[in-house]
Structure formats: structure tokens, C-alpha cells
Amino acid sequence: MRYSEAPIFFHGALQCAASVQGKGLAIMIKMENVCKNFGDLEVLKNVNLEVREGEKLVIIGPSGSGKSTTVRCMNFLEEPTSGHVYIDGQELTAKNRTKLVRESISMVFQQFNLYPHMTVLRNLTIAPVKLHHKSKKEAEELAYHYLDVVGLRDKAHAYPTMLSGGQQQRIAIARALCSQTKIILFDEPTSALDPETIQEVLDVMIRLAKENITMVVVTHEMGFARQVADRVVFMADGQILEEGTPDHFFTNPENERVRQFLGKIIRS
């Protein structure tokens, strides 16, 4: 597949700022003492985390460790039982979440969650038109631009169910880009894919990672983590056990639990 060489940012909505990513820049996401319980189950136990503008944060860890819940708290798909979440300096609350999420955060899901009753083009334009008050023409221009970015311009008039999983996920990424938010959350974006379509999605994400978008990615793709992450966070049992640069992580982790986990992943 060929990707267009067009720049990812469009209409100058977001400018590529400092090239030194994650250093000395504004804090885009801040989680402060976040706890989340589902009934008696404590899924998050006092999570503290900061993500800076343009930073690529990768969250890894065994399943059931609270990785997904952590990113889902960042856009209030899950409301923390206690603690605070700040987006770009503003506290995220049940009251302001619709507005704040609309303006600042997009999300890419494990199961894509495209709207099956709409064409690809409509999937991409509905939020810009209905929520961001763009004209239909503007929104379509934007949509075709991002379809080029993910290499699927020819699928504009297809319905999601007609596409393969990898294609659906690339459309979902284009949909997230159409909202032109500073933050994109990825919740295990390749976990539901056939092995042979994982790479096409990762390629798109690697390309995004070169831009100044703040990305938080929950993934099991260690190669991806190593290649694009500015920082890696390891979670287990609802807590952050270790965080550091990919180099630190993959060559010399301090925590025994991390070593065990990486040992298993790399062996398999």
C-alpha cells in the first residue's frame, strides 16, 4: 500500500512545536491519585501520571493490570472513584467532560467501533460537522486528507463492515485525526487484528508518532514501544511499577516483575 506524502497536519490546526518531544513542554494529561473500583474490585490503586505535550507514552503490562482503565479514565469513559484527572491544565469532571473531550481528546479502540450505519466518509465527517461546526465541504476535504494519510481514499464510500479489520482500524485512526485534537488515546489498537494486518496499522501509528500529537498507547507490541515511545510505563495490579525510557526498559529494568513480563513476551 502507498501512503501519500501529504503532511498529517492540515489547515494548520495544530502546529508542530518543539522538536524535542516531552521536554519542558506543557503537561497535557495529569492523573493525580486516581483510584477506580468496580464493585469490590480495585482496578486502579492510586495512579499518578503526567503526559507532556507531544509525548508518546506507551503503557505495557499483563492483562487485568489496569492499563485500559487508566486510558479510559483520561477521557472519562470511566469516571475515577477518587482522584483527579487534568487535561491541558483543566480538571476533567462529569460536567465538563463532553466539551473538554470534544476539544482535546480522541480515542482509537481495540474493536475499532466505527459507526456501521454510515459510510466511511460520514464516519469521518460526522463529528467535524455536528460537533466542530465545520461545513460539509471543509469536513470532507479534511476526511479525504486523512484518508490519504492512512492510505484508504478509495474506501470513502464503503461501509465499515465491508472492510478488513486492519482497514477498519486505519479508518478509526483517520476518524480520530479528523477531530484534530492534541491528544489521541490508543487502547490496544492491534489486539483484535489478524497478524498479517497488524503491521499496516502500526505503520500508520509510527507515522503519526513523528508529529506533535500527544499519544498514549496501550499495547503489547514491544517493537512499536521500543521504536516510538518517549517513555514506557509498566503497570501491574492497578499500579505503576516502573517507568522510564524504552532503552532503560528493554535493556535494564529494575523491577523483578517487569523482567519476568518482558522475559515472557520476548520469548513468545
Binding site: N75, L77, T98, K99, V101, R102, E103, I105, S106, M107, F109, Q111, F112, N113, L114, Y115, I126, A127, K130, L131, R175, S179, L185
Partner: peptide
């Protein structure tokens, strides 16, 4: 599917917009 509700919410649709669109 629950994912449809979540996708709409994550895009910033309000309750009524989510239901309607």
C-alpha cells in the same frame, strides 16, 4: 454494541447527540 456508545462519547457527543446521530 457498547462500543458504539463509547465511540460517540469519546468523540464528545452529548447524550442527546449520541442517541440521535
Amino acid at each position: 454494541p457498547k462500543g458504539q456508545f463509547e465511540a460517540a462519547q469519546s468523540q464528545g457527543f452529548s447524550y442527546l447527540e449520541k442517541m440521535y446521530y
